[in-house]
Design a protein around this nucleic acid. Structure first.
Lengths: 238, 238
DNA sequence: AAGTGGTCTAGACCACGGC
DNA sequence: CCGTGGTCTAGACCACTTC
């Protein structure tokens, strides 16, 4: 029976049964989960395996473990510091995601090529979009990606569907994390017009380098946000 | 021999020996760490225990494990999303931390009391400081804390030494994390004068609620940063 | 006192990496 | 091929919480 009968590790199967009960609402935040010993008996595994299943769930923030007391469903996660696409962000607030493509071209830019660790002179796709939520523009976003690596992207349907999912599904990109530099700046004339604000209004500027799971810097994004329509939420740990 | 001879779990002792070799530079990033089997033999411990030691070190980002290859010292950590005090921040960049206290008083503020989950009408310490780096002011920071909880703080030596360390050492506060709201705003006249900039210049505004390890919101901080002297670094995960 | 998670043993087989 | 980490067993004692 070692290693499971279907290739799935036993501890993952145990996690699935627990996660399922949480997702269906059968288990609610604060409720006790089966103890290590119970899980071991139910799934006919050793204590260490049942333990491993719970330990991993705790690391993912799904449950809390308290010595002497038990294991409990964790309060609903607020996803701080989570990298989500614009579409996902809007969906989670049940708002209409809409974005207008301003331009989509292939360019040369030495500085941005350098940020993506590409040889200078590399050709880059530049995609400029205005994002709208609640029928109002609130962000001007410019993405840069390697033109050779994502050839054909400029022909794709960029208006609808998130760029993330296109890249993930059509190009096999696995996104791992993004490093962001955040500061404030004043709107120039063009940006002000596009966002429906006044020149010199304060904007939140976010420069983002998105890394693949292989550690390769893959996308560079410059976002300019109307500060009256958007605040960034961060959680920092001691 | 169970549970060690001195109360320290075996896996922690194993971690210490490894961490020590990393700190002294005896092991450098990329170097291989002893394998599970080696550690088990060296420390006369079972494989699972040696394994646990390495797994925890990996979770903390100190080592990387690659199946079939080994365990290796991780590249030097850049502490993203880490909550550090102003003094610590400056020290890590080897700059002179200096801050000038503008005011320190006890006030009433219903909205901020609410953010700290205090009964409305609670008295609050309000501490207003200008922070300087490289001989130039770059941040106006206002902290609010419960006056009853931190009685006597207003008499303390606030000019030097970080507020964090005072609270941690003298009041036994254990800081766990902070939730931050970040946006951009324009400088008003007073702020502009204090920071040596022009009215309407863009500022990075960070509103921070700092939580204790017990989950209690303890400090509220409003920071206004000269955007030309400060950028925020964040890492977000997919 | 009963039950829980935390630590630990002394092994085992597997999948994978580098040579 | 050999060594590595990944999974797993069938138990054990301890420290702690709850009743």
């Amino acid at each position: 029976m070692r290693q499971g009968f279907n290739g799935t590790p036993a501890y993952k199967r145990i996690q699935s049964t627990i996660l399922q009960r949480i997702e269906t609402g059968q288990l609610r935040p604060g409720d006790a989960v089966n103890s290590e010993r119970e899980l071991a008996k139910i799934h006919r595994v050793s204590l260490m395996t049942a333990r491993h299943a719970l330990a991993m769930l705790e690391r993912e923030g799904m449950v809390e473990r308290r010595r002497g007391a038990g294991t409990f469903v964790a309060p609903p996660k607020i996803h701080f510091n989570k990298l989500v696409s614009f579409s996902e962000q809007m969906a989670s607030r049940s708002m209409n995601a809409r974005s207008k493509v301003l331009s989509c071209s292939v360019i040369d830019d030495q500085e941005i090529a350098a940020r993506l660790a590409l040889p200078s002179g590399s050709r880059l796709i530049k995609l400029e979009r205005v994002r709208q939520g609640a029928e109002e523009p609130f962000c001007l976003e410019t993405c840069y990606l390697s033109a050779t690596e994502f050839a054909g992207l400029t022909q794709g349907p960029l208006e609808r569907g998130s760029l993330f999912s296109t890249l993930e599904h059509n190009y096999g990109l696995e996104i791992a994390h993004a490093d962001e530099e955040v500061d404030a700046t004043a709107a120039d004339l063009r940006t002000a017009q596009l966002l429906g604000i006044t020149r010199q209004d304060p904007l939140l500027r976010i420069r983002q380098v998105i890394y693949s799971t292989k550690g390769k810097p893959t996308i560079y994004v410059l976002g300019l946000y109307r500060s009256d329509r958007h605040t960034l939420l961060i959680r920092r740990f001691r």
